[in-house]
């Protein structure tokens, strides 16, 4: 039982990071119909930027805000310069473009920071542990879960109550009609990318914390988060959050309980297990939990 709780809490902490990443995908996809393969690089940028700022002596929480804003701004820049000219082209084309934008960003980040490993500084005790229901949980995990919860509530309010949130929902539902009603669709695109970028940065900061580290491979998180997006459904923010948490928990439970069953085949099996789950799941629900069913017309 204690092992189970332990795995559950670590899973939720990891899941909250997946949820942030997955939400970023969905926000961009909903507003601009772009599936952003460069998302992992935003996570990477956020993590490296944060470390440099904190080491440069900026107060932690201020550094976090600066990181989120800068990464968001980079996202906006990418949208404006590369993806705006691509509007109206097939999804496939934008996928390829974002893959290569990601490759370029990765090279740039390597050039600036180098690929060496580094730890993410935290204002609290980095390896501190607290006991919840008998399970030992890292402060870092608790912080990740709490921060994600706060951000998600903020997001909900933004989507439901704010002017730009309503604009985003309108754009998601029909771009041309939204444009006709006077919603600045271009600005909505930019804002969505800004949001997604800052979410990715936040995810990067928590992803880099102990027991994990920040290195040149941190962008791979985006590839691992794909199953969360697809299981939740491409168009659904709620689905992304549920998918993200589920993915984190399933992955860690698989590490604890499935890997040992499989012998040598089980080494690191938890890393591909989300994909196995996703493939099986999509066979029965091809549009995920809450994805929009495409209406087929000839």
């Amino acid at each position: 039982m204690q092992t189970f709780l332990q795995l559950l809490f670590s899973g939720l902490a990891l899941g909250s990071i997946y949820a942030l990443v997955a939400l970023g995908f969905v926000v961009i996809y909903r507003s601009s119909q772009v599936f952003n393969f460069a998302h992992g690089e935003f996570v990477m940028l956020g993590a490296f930027l944060m470390i440099s700022l904190v080491r440069g002596g900026v107060w932690w929480i201020v550094a976090l805000l600066i990181t989120m804003v800068v990464t968001g701004a980079v996202g906006m820049g990418v949208e404006r310069s590369v993806l705006r000219p691509m509007i109206g082209r097939p999804v496939f084309v934008t996928v390829i473009v974002t893959i290569f934008v990601g490759a370029l960003m990765r090279v740039a980040i390597n050039l600036i920071w180098g690929g060496t490993e580094r730890g993410m500084p935290t204002p609290w005790d980095n390896t501190g542990v607290m006991e919840i229901l008998g399970a030992r949980v890292l402060f870092n995990s608790v912080a990740a879960i709490v921060a994600t919860a706060v951000v998600l509530i903020g997001f909900y309010l933004l989507f439901q109550r704010s002017r730009i949130g309503v604009g985003m929902r309108a754009t998601a539902s029909d771009q041309e009609v939204a444009l006709g009603l006077g919603i600045p669709v271009g600005r909505v695109f930019g804002f969505s990318w800004f949001l997604a970028g800052s979410l990715a940065a936040l995810a990067g900061v928590f992803l880099g914390m102990f027991p994990r580290i920040v290195d040149g491979n941190i962008w791979l998180i985006a590839l691992v988060a794909f199953p969360a997006v697809l299981i939740g459904g491409l168009e659904s923010p709620l689905g992304a959050v549920i998918g993200g948490f589920a993915l984190g928990v399933v992955q860690l439970l698989a590490q604890g309980y499935v890997n040992p069953l499989l012998g040598t085949f089980g080494n690191n099996f938890h890393q591909v297990f989300p994909y196995v789950v996703m493939i099986g799941f999509l066979m029965f629900k091809p549009y995920g939990l809450f994805g929009t069913h495409e209406v087929e017309r000839v």
């Binding site: 999804v91 496939f92 794909f226 199953p227 591909v272 493939i279 999509l282 091809p286």
Partner: peptide
């Protein structure tokens, strides 16, 4: 069953 992005990601899963 799948098309477009969903299929692309499933094939990516095949790589892993």
């Amino acid at each position: 069953r799948l098309r477009g992005l969903y299929l692309a990601i499933v094939t990516l899963g095949l790589v892993f």
